[in-house]
Design a protein around this nucleic acid. Sequence first.
DNA 1: AATGCGTGGGC
DNA 2: TGCCCAAGCAT
Length: 363
Amino acid sequence: MNQATFPNTMAEKLLQHYDQYGRKLPWRGEKNLYRIWVSEIMLQQTAVATVIPYYRKFLQELPDVPALYACPEQQLLSLWQGLGYYRRAVQMHQGAKIMVNNYHGLPPEKLDAWLQIPGVGLSTAGAILAIGRNQAHAILDGNVKRVLARLLALESPIEDRQSQLILWKLAKQLTSKERPGDYAQAIMDLGALVCTRTQPKCSLCPWQEHCGAKNYSSPSAYPVRGTKIAKPCRWQICCLLVNTEGKLYVEQRPQHGLLASLWQPPCFDWPDQQSIPSAERVNTHLPPIYQQWLSPPASSLPVVKHAFTHFNIVLYPFLFLVADSPPLVSGKWLAHADRLELPMATLHRKVLKNWDACLKEKN
DNA sequence: AATGCGTGGGC
DNA sequence: TGCCCAAGCAT
């Protein structure tokens, strides 16, 4: 469909709809760039309902750039715990450092400066300055992509470079020059409430008369997706080492990669997906130092299945009762009461939760 | 350009 | 239940 067919009255039409039906959200009406930055980073690839409690807690603990700058990374990761994409928290820390060193501890006021902040790309930078300063920047997030792909009845797969260029061009074209901040939030609300992924409510849509998908095709047929690849699966033994004080042995993950710098019980790959590991077979697959601790019979806990973005994982947890605190140097022994303060990924929390439930059952 | 990076809810 | 995907960005 030719983009020239979209009249310049569309922004105003959407804004009228927004003024009446826009969502009330904790960050709506916010003009503080720091607070908008926090919301936009948390909302990357993350559902609104999930973000809200994290947003409130984060701002309560870290109300401004200097507070974020001064916050130890471990404490920051604890605030982020359970939200996912933990790199975002580290990047915000780096961003706060840049703001303290270069901008007197204040968030920048220009797009180019925001693009130098780690974790802030074109869409996030545009959103922050459009919403906070009413600067005329376009945004292009998942919601907007879906809305625009339907307007265009875009046939090329949404993730293709060609599609991205077309969508950015249209996003800029449609953005309101008068109220770009409200427009950015309006089109995201449209995607979240009306132009939804499944069962879009076209009869409520202020843009229905302009929509190629509605008028010439089927809205739910868009956006067109590329070919998907089957997710691989991994299997791991998860070792719960418990000493006589009832403390649990945990190790910190590497600083880079998956779940960077988070803590977990020691886990080891279990290459054989055919068999569920028995206590005996587990023994032979672990480093020798573990073998002396395997209290026969080792208690097995419920299997934990977890889906990451690019692979699935199955954890086989085993309980090891350790008579004395062993000479393991890389980790530490964690009391039950201190568990929540330590940043730990959801899949490992699942294991610990199951263990708690088993203990409760026995008592 | 393609891949890595979490999690929870909807269907 | 398994699959899809959300206010994307970095490498």
